[in-house]
């Protein structure tokens, strides 16, 4: 059985994307559904701070070539094939620079001598664990100084989708670039978290455009109501994107988040907010091919 996949994304950081993903995942888990939360914000994975999870951590590896045999004199085939500048002729022979390698294998394909061999190199890690309420948490983490975020995001998604679940929630990287696309591509629904400020509206517009290009169904969660006066609801009506929920901002919310507590545990209204969001989201899923998870 294929799980329903919902990605939580945001055009700018700090709008409350992780807050929405963690609370929604924990709420759905408590309704008895099998939930996997995949933290695909691999440059700054923070979902794990909200759960008491002991994770089994596996490295994310990528194939990187190395030169193990003798190269024919003046052969530059591998250097010429590499579009990432990861193989250079230095000191008269090809040298592999693993940091630039994308692991595409073009070099080994064109090597006429069999001098190239691929080995696996760690670029990040994926941790898999279970929270006390049964939710599974899959956390991708990019090694600091590494730039292969999409590879770690792909691995995190694969791990999450291999778990037996009714619902998989993916916490995507902020922004509308390749890292966000790697997390949200092909999901059943995209939750876009924003705030009622000019910055929030500007970045939401970019995300709605991206959802259109990726042909994803999307809905908006307006967070921090009261911290700005931009009318996100009016934008949603014009853009034809449903506004699924509005979450207020108050000091209790801020204090919960600062201390790493879930709103559904630490805020008097928290449970109701996320129950309402889930029920509204299910109404939208019901009209899609994904269907309502049961």
């Amino acid at each position: 059985m294929t799980p329903v996949t919902v990605a939580v994304a945001s055009g700018k950081g700090g709008t409350g994307k992780t807050l929405v993903a963690t609370n929604l995942a924990a709420h759905v888990a408590r309704t008895g559904l099998r939930v996997t939360l995949a933290d695909c914000d691999v440059e700054a994975p923070n979902a794990h701070l909200f759960f008491d999870v002991r994770a089994a951590v596996a490295p994310v590896e990528m194939p990187v070539p190395e030169i193990v045999g003798a190269c024919p004199a003046r052969c530059t085939a591998c250097r010429d094939a590499c579009r990432f500048g990861a193989i250079r002729i230095l000191g008269g022979r090809p040298v592999v620079l693993p940091d630039l390698c994308h692991g595409c294998g073009a070099c080994t394909q064109v090597c006429p001598s069999g001098a190239l061999h691929e080995r696996q190199v760690a670029v990040g890690s994926v941790g898999v664990g279970r929270a006390p309420d049964g939710m599974r948490l899959v956390t991708g983490q990019l090694h600091v100084g590494q730039s292969k975020a999409p590879a770690v995001i792909r691995a995190t998604r694969e791990h999450a989708l291999s778990e037996v679940s009714d619902v998989v929630l993916l916490d995507a990287a902020p922004g509308a670039a390749c890292t966000a696309v790697a997390a949200v591509h092909g999901t059943d629904f995209l939750l876009l978290v924003t705030e009622p400020t000019p910055f929030g509206l500007h970045d939401l517009t970019a995300m709605v455009d991206l959802a259109g290009e990726l042909r994803l169904r999307a809905g908006v969660v307006l967070n921090r109501v009261g911290t700005g006066e931009v009318d996100i609801g009016a934008y949603c009506r014009t853009a034809g994107v449903p506004l699924l929920a509005s979450l207020p901002f108050d000091r209790d919310v801020a204090a919960c988040y600062a201390d790493g507590r879930l709103l559904i545990d630490g805020h008097p209204a928290g449970d109701r907010w996320f129950a309402d969001l889930w029920s509204t989201l299910c109404d939208h899923l019901a009209t899609s091919s994904a269907g309502v998870p049961a």
């Binding site: 094939a81 579009r83 595409c104 294998g105 073009a106 394909q109 064109v110 591509h185």
Partner: peptide, 13 residues
Amino acid sequence: PWLCESCGACTWG
């Protein structure tokens, strides 16, 4: 285009 990394491995094959 969303998955392609422009590596060119396909062109060599």
